[in-house]
Design a protein around this nucleic acid. Structure first.
Length: 420
RNA sequence: GCGAUCGUGGUGUAACGGUUAACACUGGAGCUUGUGGAGCUCUCAAUCCGGGUUCAAUUCCCGGCGAUCGCCCCA
């Protein structure tokens, strides 16, 4: 290859490479998410990132399908979309086997999703998100449980309750206000979307008045929004959440969530850190979505939590874990004659479940140790003539510098007790 | 999709319309042929891409690409 043809090392716009340190954090996040979901009895599922485009046309707005997805035509002339979210896939999978799946079903997945738009901080073109859904259950316990799972994930990542707050509202409050004020159904979705942006828009009242085209109604709507600050249902939810160990829920009727498909409880988890005060993730109840597949309507509630915002949260709160490779031990080969012995020892240790890398580089022993230290491998053993002859090995702890000389069959035990 | 700001080795910075683009860290080699973290020596490595203005462009202009911020949108 000539110099002019040099390939770019940049990753595709809006997507990330995960170098080992990044992947370590990714795995840390995922393992905590998985564990908490499973503690609540959720089963893992998965699906292809490719879906028929019509899956999103049926439920989401045209704009999202046309302008914010990766959509293409395959060789068989089918319209294909890289999934922009997981909920339609979940709904499709449940609906496809609704007679066989025992309900209520508790399902979770950690999936990559794609959106075609301008990347910004906290918003990329590909990200990974935990989706946990409780399908086939209505009622306050189900709503509370989904919030408790979200809360549990945050707690398991090291967050204290004061680090975040769970703002909860209910679409039915808005619906009843719209009804009492006399707002036609066709305006409701647009108004809801405007309310979602209320804090960001300076001329909120003017816009609202323009949208309703009826000044009295607009005034009354604003009055009602300010008057109604909670509901009996939300108070019951609060009590149920307390029982589940969730104490940082607040009712905030200004929470609306942008999407049309929510039908009941909705929530958003907010960072309370001063530098990062924003919505981290959220979810809610969507009782009409599964009915779109033609079968019977099935109630559902769920949430989605993205890895990008989770990382930002952990960083802002100083909760990032320190990197540690999976490798516990590096064997440093002192001379060419010792490599066969090192291979043999490594195999024996692997049978005892020790993760072990062999350094065949032929570099000086000091360089090999320095490299192991740089890679944060916690232990090294040098293998040379002395070890071959004696059958005893000096295990060096790179953090403390301490050495312990042991026969081969005691090494694994020593490592595990030192690593805890 | 729109607007603004920015783009120099792997990383972080510097410089200038004009000689060989500087410094630190990192990487590599050595001082030191069986034990790391210090020190010293040497060394690899960059002006995002394309076009224009100019005797001369890394610098100025235009376009593309990318990043960040805002708008739009938010699964």
């Amino acid at each position: 290859m000539t110099k002019r043809e040099k390939l770019s090392t940049e990753s595709y716009k809006g997507v990330r490479d995960f170098y080992p340190e990044d992947q370590f954090l990714q795995r840390y996040l995922f393992e905590h998410m998985e564990r908490v979901c499973e503690l609540f009895g959720y089963e893992e599922y998965s699906a292809s990132i490719l879906e028929h485009s019509e899956l999103y046309r049926s439920k989401t707005s045209e704009e999202i399908v046309n302008e914010q997805t990766y959509t293409f035509t395959d060789r068989g002339n089918r319209e294909v979309t890289l999934r922009p979210e997981m909920t339609p896939t979940l709904a499709r999978m449940i609906a496809a086997r609704s007679r066989d799946i025992p309900l209520p079903a508790r399902w979770y997945t950690i999936a990559n999703v794609f959106r075609y738009e301008r990347p910004q901080r906290g918003r990329l073109r590909e990200h990974w998100q935990l989706n946990a859904d409780l399908v086939g259950a209505e009622g306050v316990e189900a709503d509370a449980e989904i919030i408790a799972v979200a809360h549990g994930v945050m707690r398991s990542l090291g967050a204290e309750e004061r680090d975040f707050e769970i703002r909860v509202s209910d679409r039915r409050i808005l619906d009843s206000i719209y009804q009492s004020v006399g707002i036609a159904k066709e305006y409701a979705a647009d108004i809801t979307r405007l309310l979602d942006r209320r804090a960001k828009v300076d001329d909120f009242e003017k816009r609202l008045t323009d949208m309703i085209a009826h000044e009295e109604k607009a005034v009354k709507l604003i009055e009602e929004l300010e008057r109604v600050t909670s509901s009996a249902y939300l108070e019951e939810l609060r009590i149920t959440l307390e029982r589940m160990g969730v104490h940082n829920m607040i009712v905030d009727t200004s929470i609306t969530r942008g999407f049309d498909y929510y039908t009941g409880m909705i929530f958003e988890v907010y960072d309370t850190h001063e530098d990062n005060r924003r919505s981290l993730f959220g979810g809610g109840r969507y009782d009409n979505l599964l009915g779109m597949f033609g079968g019977e309507s099935i109630p559902a509630v769920g949430f989605g939590m993205g890895d990008v915002t989770a990382r930002d949260f952990l960083e802002a709160h100083n909760l990032l874990p320190e990197y540690a490779p999976a490798t516990e031990l590096m064997l440093c080969v002192v001379d060419k004659e010792s490599s066969a012995h090192a291979i043999q020892l490594a195999q024996a240790l692997r049978r005892e479940d020790v993760t072990v890398a062999i350094n065949f580089s032929g570099k000086r022993i000091g360089d090999q140790i320095r490299q192991a230290d740089k890679m944060k491998v916690p232990f090294v053993i040098a293998i040379g003539e002395k070890e071959r002859v004696e059958g005893r090995y000096a295990i060096k702890n790179l953090a403390t510098g301490a050495e312990m000389t042991l026969p081969a069959d005691r090494i694994a035990e020593h490592l595990f007790s030192s690593l805890g």
